[in-house]
Design a binder for these strands. Structure first.
Lengths: 221, 221
DNA sequence: CGGGATCCGTTACGATACTG
DNA sequence: CAGTATCGTAACGGATCCCG
């Protein structure tokens, strides 16, 4: 592997950046935080990353112990975070919270999948979940399925199917964006831009409370 | 200004990285978090950044509203963070906390000044200060002076002189490193590798408690 | 078809030299 | 002191090809 450009400075921030500061690396981590993913799935979510760069970045992440290759059956391999890699969650969240302060530019391109949404909401949920909250929910955004598990003050959001959800929440990406950018108020969102199918009665209050805290936290300042 | 490489993705993390994700930018912010700095002071702290890159990055930070040029008197100009730029403090801290998990490599170069120490300790202090703590301290590391202000649960650490410190704390960078890397235990540090000169009696307990919390938080895992 | 490797034009970086 | 100018080198981005 080519010895990448590195700061090699005696500073913890520089040491962190030597591992995750390269172009694309943090966005790859972002998608991996939504759960294990195949090469092509990552490539799709990162709209426009060159294949060789994705290869190179993944190799470095594996080499540094932040990710690993795993067998997903059927001869397919997936990349997933190691325990060390998962510790980047707070960095990812702080970046998302800071980035949420800026309105999107005009000529932006939407990501090829919504792993970014799962990661951002999951990291936010981890910050605002209370010990009393306890549920599993399917979250559908534009038909893409994610699974939110909350228990004992901890939260985890994965891109993909949910096994035994207490409820299913559906909405659209554009409505979520309008909500966090302050272009739509929460009542309007709750009334006309999402739907809730409850399987375990009583859980919907917990869920909506969490959603409200998440969007508060990610609102454009 | 050359239109820099940018992700232009519909994702808050990408929006953040479009502003602060370029090489060197986060390290420049790191040094600016220690207080206003002149061009040459930044250049020294970043050991080896090319002058044109520093120029370019500073221009972009100013353009994006994270920093500004200010008059420091005597015809000197300094760069300083804006309110928006100060909001990167949590990102910086999370990077430092993550980077602290890795031991320094062998062939690293020490920074030209200790602004990195001021920033890292300041960001950590902001996380662990309690509302009961209230003091101003001069911190001397290898003779470089920094000023730590703590009041009402908030904390701020600036590189430079302190006006009316309640106490003066002296130590060396190598001792601090050994402490956070677990190569020296806190008692040994307190006994033989630092000294404390107290001006306002009673404040030293608060200070040492804060120091202990900071090093706990930054200890290599 | 998924998971890369290889090639090549373009852009950014890094070092040094130079200027107001 | 605070940058600008220049230029060789390394990284990126897009495309194409390879292999199971």
């Amino acid at each position: 592997m080519a010895k990448a450009r590195s700061y090699r400075l005696l500073c913890p921030i520089a040491r962190a950046l030597d591992r995750i500061g390269d172009r694309w690396t943090l966005l790859i981590l972002r998608d991996l935080h939504a759960g294990p993913a195949r090469f092509s799935e990552l490539q799709r979510g990162l709209t426009g990353i060159a294949a060789n760069l994705l290869t190179e970045r993944l190799a470095k992440l594996v080499d540094d112990g932040l990710a690993r290759k795993a067998d997903a059956g059927h001869g397919a391999t997936v990349y997933e975070l190691t325990a060390l890699g998962k510790q980047t969650s707070d960095i990812i969240f702080e970046l998302a919270a800071f980035g949420a302060r800026f309105a999107p530019e005009d000529d932006i391109v939407p990501p090829g999948n919504l792993r970014t949404v799962a990661t951002t909401m999951g990291a936010a949920a981890r910050r605002v979940a209370t010990p009393e909250m306890n549920f599993d929910a399917t979250v559908l955004v534009d038909g893409e399925q994610m699974c939110l598990n909350v228990s004992e003050g901890s939260a985890d959001m994965t891109y993909g199917e949910c096994r035994a959800p207490d409820l299913t929440f559906s909405t659209s990406y554009s409505a979520l964006l309008a909500l966090t950018e302050g272009d739509m108020d929460p009542d309007e969102f709750a009334a006309n831009h999402c739907s809730l199918e409850v399987r375990s009665p009583g859980k919907e209050a917990e869920f909506m409370e969490l959603m409200s805290r998440i969007t508060d936290m990610l609102r454009t300042a």
